[in-house]
Write a protein that binds this DNA or RNA. Sequence first.
RNA 1: CGGGGUGUGGCGCAGUUGGUAGCGCGCGGCGUUUGGGACGCUGAGGCCGGAGGUUCGAGUCCUCUCACCCCGACCA
Length: 484
Amino acid sequence: MTTERKYVEELIEQEDDFDRWYVEVIQKAELADESPVRGTRVIRPYGFALWENMQVELDRRIKATGVQNAYFPLFIPKSYLEREAQHIQGFAPEVAWVTKGGDKELEEPLAVRPTSESIICPMFARWVQSYRDLPILINQWCSVVRWEERPRAFLRTLEFLWQEGHTVHATLEEAEERARLMLEVYRDFVETELAIPVIPGQKSESEKFAGALRTYTIEAMMGGKHWALQSATSHNLGDHFGRVFEITFLDREGKRRFAFNTSWGLSHRTIGAMVMVHGDDRGLKLPPRVAPIQVVIVPIWRKDEERRQVEETVERVRTMLRRAVRVHADLRDDKTPGWKFNDWDLKGVPIRLEIGPRDVANQQVTLVRRDVLGQRQTVPVANVVEAVQQELASIQDSLFRAAREMLERHTEEVRDYERLKERVAANAGFNRAFWCGSSDCEARVKTETKATIRCIPFEQPAEYEPCLVCGAPGRYQVIWARAY
RNA sequence: CGGGGUGUGGCGCAGUUGGUAGCGCGCGGCGUUUGGGACGCUGAGGCCGGAGGUUCGAGUCCUCUCACCCCGACCA
């Protein structure tokens, strides 16, 4: 450990205090910084570049399902937010209100959107007249505000970045299909781009979105304490919002009907997920597909003459790579190579290329992978593009495998309530167990262990055993875990 | 809202029984260095969270207050 500690002396080790490691690594890798308002964070250029790369990939997938982007106002009149009773009940405690415009008291307070159903649905009501107008498929990229008691960088901040999709349909079946489709989009995005395996499933009644008929979720396991993180949700809102906002249309038979809605969102908390799932004692490990810098080139020289030759080769390699990957040449002359190695390890850049006099002489570069530090390989300059692309794909793959292995290793089928208590107390991970479906059993476990039902996985066993808590016939196999 | 803790250069901290503020890192300059966080010299930077009080004198003692952090409660 002492030799390890030498590399990044200022970063606490995960094992010592995972939560503090999380805070420190975000700060030191320059993903985000503190801001004057408690619970808000500045997202720095490196962190924002990561989010932008994520946006591009997710946006593409969303649009591929026929959705269009739009933008709705930040402010929602109080009366609008209050129309769906469960919706406002769920969000009331964490809504931020604007009551004054300049010096003038507003006639009606405006909510800063905690989510936009209640401002989008009234617009849907205006736009929908006939079954021919349906479906409407809208997405917006924006930030929302929820006045949380205990903020955590990226995972739970007062203001956070996300996309929220909102759709209207003629039938419940169509809404259901859309809700499930978008969850599948999220699953694919999170697993493919972020290299995080997830468990798709349905939320229990007590955990579902305020105002929804059904909520679907993808749940991921974080490193360290092996807690769960709800990584995205998709809701079938039924006709709850259709009725209160009077989104009606004439069907083919000329009959007036209420429309059905869905909404679905993925936020920048998934950045926090990447940090916690892939990171190690040296810092971040960013999945190549979304990493702001995929390859960093570190030049090494002693004399001015060497410097000239090395930088010439660096420039040549950078130009070769630039068309294929996101590459950065670290030409700072006030930092030593060793310092740079540690710095880029901390920032999670997947591949480092070292180019020194030896490499120049042999027309090669030295390639080091962030996920398997210490294993250096040399690559002829002529082959560098191909080699880098191959390694990036391989890193993406191995990050996903490692995360999946962690998920599997820390998941257990639990048949005894005492065992569940033990495992939750020990931060042992996910617990698969049978549940009768009663909210009493659910509440009891939450009170006694702090674990909640993360989801009812879509994948269910062929046969059901008795409820873990009360012994009544089991109706579902669920995942119990503590969550961020 | 309960329990605990911390506020001193950008960051991390020290500051004894009260005597007029210091260390490390970082930052600027110069020189030597550079294959896993180099070194020397030199320089800049602080009304010690805020208000009031005690005192000849307060970073230090007293009172009040503010902010932040941690643990609970709460939170899709």
